[in-house]
Nucleic acid binder design. Structure first.
Lengths: 195, 195
DNA sequence: ATTCAATTAGACTATTTAGTCTAGTGACAG
DNA sequence: CTGTCACTAGACTAAATAGTCTAATTGAAT
């Protein structure tokens, strides 16, 4: 087993700790202890706790979001079915169902008070919104949905309601309830369905 | 202007600070300074920071939730219309639209790591879910919705998706977008409508 | 007015926090 | 083999943190 470079190990552990405990409640010392990395090494690679977490957001959290929520549409598959598939994949991810969406949780904690975090996190939100919007627009142009469907606002609705459902207390969440709830989101698409 | 009792003042300021900054990022000293209350007084009334915030949750946050989201149904009004009215009231609440639901935000921050907070916050979530569930059941018995509507899961969906929509970054939130998004939630009810 | 409990006041403590500093180590180029 | 430089190591610092302690003050009852 090859030794993982210090910087990469720090990013991995930082993701885990911040995901579960949040930014403020995660101490640098806790990260260093769990990663078995001395302080000097960390401050050699990152100039502050905030820089470390911002790097983690870009290099770990964002790629994970891309993996969690795909906007792929398979051959001969309706857009609705593509959404359903994505929800199914999400429902099978134990971490997501238990602890909610890490991007959303960080945004809830920090966006109101830290403009820098808000700016970084918001770009990803807008990118994801754009991905869903493009799918909806494809559905419109393919005649699956009515032209009256506002792809911009509906995309935002899908994103935020999924996050809301996911990020409930772990004691109130389960894979099964997520799947049922996400079906209701698809129900609201029915109003705009043509075929 | 009558002087507000120390304990009450502390609960008020604690709500404001924890709502915006979160539990961990709010220091006892910051609360005391803003409330102009000396440390001894606070620790006379509450045995710890956690006790102070738990008291705030029960005595301030919960009543506010009751005020924010009412389950009242006016004479000659459909259940659907009652929901629409509630959403309209919520959309006019600047704090809610800007900073999201304080109950949900606290749950996102603490439920995964603190069982005591999770237990207290979850009771209110279940109570609110029960309120919505009762409205949906009334709608079923009055013939507004089909019996196939699962009032339990749909109530959870309504609650969590509203919170998800509300608790997005302040920089991405507005009263208008909330109103549009909440309409999509009502759209998903259409599938179960009879009249 | 006097007593007494409730409350206020804030200096103090122990711990944890993010961050600094300087000395060392090791790999690699010449 | 040697000099260099990126990285490691962890003791150290200053600030902030939650919480303690004892003395002073207040207000209500007698």
């Amino acid at each position: 087993m090859k030794k993982q470079p210090t910087r990469e190990k720090l990013l991995d552990i930082t993701f885990e700790e911040v995901y579960i405990n949040g930014y403020t409640a995660t101490s640098v010392d806790a990260i260093l202890k769990k990663a078995s990395v001395p302080k000097g090494s960390m401050y050699h690679h990152f100039k502050s706790k905030k820089e470390l977490v911002l790097a983690m957001v870009v290099e770990r959290l964002f790629p994970k979001m891309d993996a969690f929520f795909s906007y792929e549409i398979k051959e001969n598959e309706s857009i609705t079915q593509s959404f359903r598939n994505t929800f199914l994949v999400v429902s099978k991810n134990r971490l997501l169902v238990t602890y909610g969406c890490p991007l959303y949780r960080l945004m809830v904690e920090l966006s109101a008070t830290d403009k820098e975090f808000d700016a970084v996190l918001s770009t990803k939100v807008n990118e994801m919104k754009g991905g869903i919007k493009a799918m909806l627009e494809q559905g419109i142009s393919l005649g699956e949905f009515d032209k009256s469907l506002n792809s911009e606002t509906f995309a935002t609705y899908m994103l935020t309601s999924v996050w809301g459902i996911l990020s409930l207390s772990p004691s109130l969440s389960s894979s099964k309830t997520f799947l049922i709830q996400s079906q209701y989101i698809l129900d609201s698409l029915e109003a705009y369905k043509l075929t």
